[in-house]
């Protein structure tokens, strides 16, 4: 390759360097603005739909101190047993 051709290529390479780096910086700066916008939007409208399972999980009830299950747990167990019996009527003699 003659030196004239190399000089031309070198010039093209330096143009690429300047244009390429400028573009990469501009693009990613734009992306920074976009992320900040998204974050601001999410702060302003903190969501009717909370899809994050960690935040939607209801607070776990405090554990009972005595051995007897509380009224609510009894009601839930009762309902579950009732449901089960209804579904499996054929197998259960009552």
């Amino acid at each position: 390759m003659n030196s004239e051709a190399i000089s031309t290529l070198l010039f093209e390479a330096s143009t690429l360097l300047v244009i390429g780096m400028t573009f990469v910086f501009l693009f990613l700066t734009l992306l920074i603005a976009a992320i900040n916008l998204i974050a601001a939007f999410c702060r302003k409208f903190p969501g009717h739909f909370h899809t994050d399972p960690k935040t939607t999980l209801p607070q776990a009830p405090l554990p009972n101190t005595d051995d007897q299950p509380d009224a609510k747990t009894m009601a839930v167990i009762g309902a579950a047993v009732h449901q089960y019996r209804k579904k499996h009527r054929l197998n259960v003699k009552d």
């Binding site: 190399i6 390429g20 910086f25 700066t29 992306l31 920074i32 992320i35």
Partner: peptide
């Protein structure tokens, strides 16, 4: 911490500088 994108951009200088170096190897 979106400003970290600038670091990702700066490190790409390696690519464009090498482009220059690869052409220079033609000497």
């Amino acid at each position: 911490n979106p400003r970290m994108l600038l670091l990702g951009a700066a490190a790409q200088f390696g690519i464009f500088a090498t482009l220059f170096g690869a052409i220079a190897l033609n000497w």
